[in-house]
Computed example of a mutant assay.
Amino acid sequence: MRRQLIVLALAASAAATAGAGLTARWIMSDEPDRKTGVQAGATGPVGKDGTAAVARRPLDTARLRQTVRAYNAQRPGKAGVMAVDLRTGRSFGENEKGRFVSASIMKVDILTGLLLRRQNDRRGLSESEKDLARQMIRESDNSAADALYAESGYGSGIREANRRLGLTETTPFQTSWGSSLTSPADQVRLLTSLAGNGPLGPPGREYVLGLMGTVLREQAWGVSAAARPGERVALKNGWTPVREQGHGWTINSIGRITGPDHDFLVAVCSGENPTMEDGVTTVEHMADLVVSTMRQ
Score class of each variant (00 low, 15 high):
Ala16Met: 10
Thr170Met: 09
Cys269Thr: 09
Arg205Gln: 11
Gly155Thr: 08
Asp261Phe: 00
Ala14Lys: 09
Ala220Asp: 02
Thr23Gly: 04
Ala144His: 02
Arg163Leu: 12
Met276Asp: 13
Asn252Ala: 12
Glu31Ile: 05
Gly210Val: 07
Thr293Leu: 02
Gly155Tyr: 09
Gly80Ser: 02
Leu167Thr: 07
Gly37Ser: 06
Pro274Tyr: 11
Trp249Ile: 02
Gly259Phe: 00
Arg163Asn: 10
Ala234Tyr: 09
Ser176Gly: 03
Arg75Gln: 15
Arg243Ala: 13
Lys107Ala: 05
Glu284Asp: 03
Phe92Trp: 12
Arg90Met: 03
Ala79Met: 09
Met28Phe: 01
Ala42Cys: 07
Asp263Leu: 08
Glu94Gly: 06
Pro260Asp: 13
Arg56Lys: 08
Ala267Phe: 11
Leu5Ala: 14
Ile251His: 12
Arg243Phe: 14
Ser176Asn: 11
Gly89Lys: 07
Ser224Tyr: 01
Glu151Arg: 13
Arg295Met: 11
Val68Arg: 05
Gly50Pro: 13
Ser180Ala: 12
Ser270Met: 00
Ala52Glu: 15
Cys269Leu: 15
Phe92His: 04
Leu265Pro: 15
Ser156Asn: 08
Gly124Met: 07
Gly153Ile: 00
Thr282Pro: 06
Thr171Met: 09
Asp141Cys: 07
Pro76Ala: 08
Asn273Asp: 13
Leu289Asp: 07
Ala18Trp: 10
Ala79Cys: 11
Trp249Arg: 04
Arg205His: 04
Gly47Asp: 05
Glu160Leu: 10
Asn95Tyr: 15
Ala40Met: 04
Thr182Trp: 02
Leu265Trp: 06
Met136Ile: 04
Pro241Gln: 06
Ala161Gly: 02
Leu5His: 09
Lys48Arg: 10
Thr214Ala: 11
Pro260Phe: 06
Ala83Lys: 03
Val291Met: 04
His247Gln: 13
Glu206Gly: 13
Gly259Trp: 00
Val280His: 05
Glu127Asp: 14
Gln187Leu: 12
Arg3Gln: 08
Leu167Cys: 12
Ala62Met: 11
Thr23Arg: 12
Arg90Ile: 05
Val101Asn: 09
Ala226Asp: 01
Asp288Cys: 01
Asn162Gly: 06
Leu194Asp: 03
Phe100Lys: 05
Asp109Trp: 06
Ala220Gln: 05
Leu165Ser: 05
Pro199Asp: 11
Leu191Glu: 06
Val101Ala: 10
Pro32Thr: 07
Gly93Ile: 07
Gly93Phe: 01
Lys35Met: 13
Arg117Gly: 09
Glu94Val: 11
Ala52Thr: 14
Glu129Cys: 06
Val108Gln: 00
Arg205Pro: 03
Asp30Cys: 04
Ser128Leu: 10
Arg164Lys: 15
Gln74Gly: 08
Pro76Ser: 14
Ala144Met: 06
Leu165Met: 13
Arg256Ala: 12
Asp263Ile: 07
Arg123Asn: 08
Ala42Trp: 08
Thr293Met: 01
Gly178Ser: 12
Leu132Ser: 01
Val280Phe: 01
Ala287Arg: 05
Ala226Gln: 04
Asp131Arg: 08
Gly246Tyr: 01
His262Val: 01
His285Asn: 12
Ser140Glu: 02
Arg164Pro: 03
Gly248Leu: 06
Ala103Ile: 02
Gly166Trp: 01
Val223Trp: 05
Met28Asp: 01
Leu8Ile: 02
Ser102Asn: 10
Val215Trp: 00
Lys48Phe: 14
Arg75Leu: 14
Val215Gly: 07
Ile251Cys: 10
Thr192Lys: 13
Glu96Asn: 14
Val283Pro: 00
Val81Arg: 00
Leu125Trp: 07
